[in-house]
């Protein structure tokens, strides 16, 4: 008997066990959507993100985004020469004039979110810009357009689905953290220890 045939048999056996378990039982209905009634806008998003341990900055009116971010990073990164890793497809105007480095070595990663949900403080990050830039850097900067902020997580996910889920989507809602050692909160365990959301 070939391995492929074995696999098919196992599959059919499991499905047949499920059907026999359910035989004679009434199928229960789906209760429909859950209304979570979240509050929208930059304010609601910021307060939730800050509760989650992230930092929210709003681009000053009239400022050039790349330059503005460069000045912000001077305050946030305590390195003489911070380097940046930039996500695939991030527009040039959003990239600060700093030396670039691979995500494995860079001090800052730069991403653009597809959307956000205020009720959970969640940023939607597509895998198509590269996942390493979102994960391996100590400080992750995520650009977000005001218009892309949804009140509810469900709406942010729906709009992501319409744009295409692709192979993977990451939802980031705060810096990496753990309380596995003596119940003390530690940030930056594996993923970025600092999350900065830059609102356009």
């Amino acid at each position: 008997m070939s391995a492929a045939r074995d696999a098919t048999t196992t599959r059919d056996e499991i499905l047949s066990r499920v059907r026999s378990a359910l035989s004679g039982r009434t199928g229960l209905p789906h209760p429909g959507p859950l209304d979570t009634q979240g509050e929208g806008g930059v304010g609601a998003l910021s307060s939730r993100l800050e509760r989650n341990g992230a930092r929210v900055e709003r681009l000053e009116p009239g400022a050039a985004p790349g330059e503005w971010l460069s000045h912000l990073l001077e305050r946030l990164v305590h390195e003489r020469e911070p380097s940046i890793a930039v996500g695939h497809g991030v527009p040039a105007r959003l990239i600060p004039p700093l030396p670039s480095a691979p995500p494995e070595e860079a001090s800052v990663g730069i991403s653009v979110a597809w959307g956000a949900a205020a009720e959970t403080g969640t940023l939607v990050l597509p895998a198509t810009e590269g996942r390493r830039v979102q994960l391996l850097v100590p400080l992750h900067v995520v650009w977000l357009e005001k218009e892309h902020i949804h009140a509810r997580l469900g709406d942010a996910l729906d709009s992501t689905r319409q744009r295409g889920l692709g192979a993977a989507v990451g939802l980031h809602s705060g810096p990496s953290k753990s309380a596995d050692i003596g119940r003390t909160l530690v940030t930056g365990v594996h993923g970025p220890g600092q999350l900065v959301v830059a609102v356009l």
Binding site: N52, H88, G130, L165, A168, G170, L171, S173, G174
Partner: peptide, 19 residues
Amino acid sequence: AIGCFVSLIQGPATAPGDD
């Protein structure tokens, strides 16, 4: 309100840029 990281995975990476 939600875990700090959620992965939504549909399949293997195929798009340019996806590592």
